[in-house]
Design a protein around this nucleic acid. Structure first.
Length: 382
DNA sequence: AACTCCATCAACCGCGTGCAA
DNA sequence: CTTGCACGCGGTTGATGGAGT
């Protein structure tokens, strides 16, 4: 019961594109506009899969694309957004005019991840590697050899072998190299000790969302600053948050090593979240150590509420997005839409509507989160 | 010079989602 | 309500070229 192939693989050319093929695509698009990709190969006289044509155009031939190196500002934005929303490359790319999700993803995987490792920061959790290791020691000794902690194994080599580069694209961040990335004062749920025995927690799935919300808020606040130093002080300094008080009403005393904002969490309400899914590779975690999920969600997000994400997540053919949140401009610059169409400019930090909009996008994937919990968790009204 | 290793990035793949029939 | 199609997304692969030995 496999999925049918999108085209006759034996009859299509694969591999790198020639200038001639590029010209055919461009000619087709200039005549007909982008879209209807399945019929493009036939109409344009190409022996390529329609999907491949779309990819070639959107990732390489689109006239608005930049092909030069990423600037330090772009790199910093990518890192900040990755810390906030994880590997949602298309969302991140929308904040970077002229960059595609593929560009951003490749740049992250080949450059930024290694740079963070070299700075002693785990690129998955955006936490100091030393702190992650310390947390693991706290929960019962060092992991067995071969055990994966976040992206530690994958990047361990890089962490110790990264060479200094003459042009450090993220030098501003590198200045903070061994400084822990601090969540807003009082709610450093990423920084809190990982206590496997304490079951007095809210829904663990919600914890991850809370972490994301806080990170999003943080990035938003930072992005609203115009001056680089202030941005960094928001992101890396102690006590620089708007969520100022400690999170006293909810015990948030666990964290998800390796989980970050790209949790490999089942997103269906019917499949309960378990820590073991985050710690799948961590053989030393015994089943009976899994945290309990002892608080049922109240007022879960409805399907209607959730629909925002799925509509807005996808770019339309013109590269413009459907709903407000995704055109929010973290950098404070003009919104990006490849056709030049600009939608209403929402300000995430200043608009409760857009806050909700953004949260809806997260809640769509993580629908167990209770809306009522959000303000109290953040201790700040939306 | 020959070979191996590694980084980069374009391209591919499978899956999820929206939508129309 | 179901089905099939089109499209977009994110993870992964593989070709290529440069660096190192």
């Amino acid at each position: 019961m496999g999925r049918l192939p999108c085209c006759d693989k034996s009859n299509v050319k694969r591999g790198l594109w020639t200038a001639e093929e590029d010209a055919k695509i461009l000619a087709y698009v200039s005549d007909n506009g982008p879209g209807n990709w399945t019929s493009v190969p036939k109409k344009a006289g190409l022996r390529r899969c329609g999907k491949s044509c779309r990819l070639r155009y959107t990732n390489y031939l689109r006239p608005d694309l930049k092909h030069d190196n990423f600037t330090p500002q772009e790199e910093e934005l990518i890192i900040n957004l990755h810390a906030a929303i994880g590997s949602r490359w298309s969302l991140i790319a929308q904040q970077l005019p002229g960059r595609t999700d593929n560009d951003v993803k490749n740049h992250w995987n080949t450059k930024l991840r290694k740079k963070l490792c070299g700075m002693g920061i785990d690129p998955v959790t955006h936490r100091p590697i030393s702190q992650i290791l310390a947390d693991y020691e706290n929960i019962g000794g060092l992991p067995k050899p071969g055990t994966r902690i976040g992206s530690l194994n994958r990047d361990l080599k890089n962490a110790f072998t990264v060479k200094p580069e003459p042009h450090d694209g993220i030098s501003g961040i590198a200045n903070h190299s061994m400084m822990p990335i601090r969540m807003p004062a009082g709610e450093p749920i990423f920084n809190r000790p990982f206590n496997m025995n304490n079951s007095n927690t809210i829904n663990n799935h919600s914890l991850l969302l809370l972490a994301q919300f806080q990170a999003i808020k943080l990035v938003t606040e930072a992005s609203s600053c115009t001056n680089q130093e202030t941005i960094q002080s928001h992101l890396f300094s102690e006590g620089s948050s708007s969520t100022s008080s400690s999170s006293s009403n909810v015990q948030v005393n666990s964290q998800a090593p390796g989980s970050n904002c790209q949790p490999s969490v089942p997103n269906t309400p019917s499949s309960p979240f378990s820590w073991s899914e985050f710690l799948l590779d961590d053989a030393f975690l015994q089943p009976n150590q899994q945290l309990q999920q002892d608080i049922p969600s109240t007022g879960s997000v409805s399907q209607a509420q959730q629909s925002g994400y799925n509509n807005g997540d996808h770019m339309n053919n013109e590269g413009a997005t459907d709903i407000g949140y995704s055109t929010y401009d973290y950098t404070g610059h003009d919104n990006y839409a490849t056709t030049g169409a600009v939608e209403t400019n929402h300000t995430f930090g200043a608009s409760s509507t857009s806050n909700h909009s953004f949260l809806e996008t997260m809640l769509d994937r993580d629908s167990e989160m209770s809306w009522e919990l959000v303000p109290s968790l953040l201790e700040e009204p939306f």
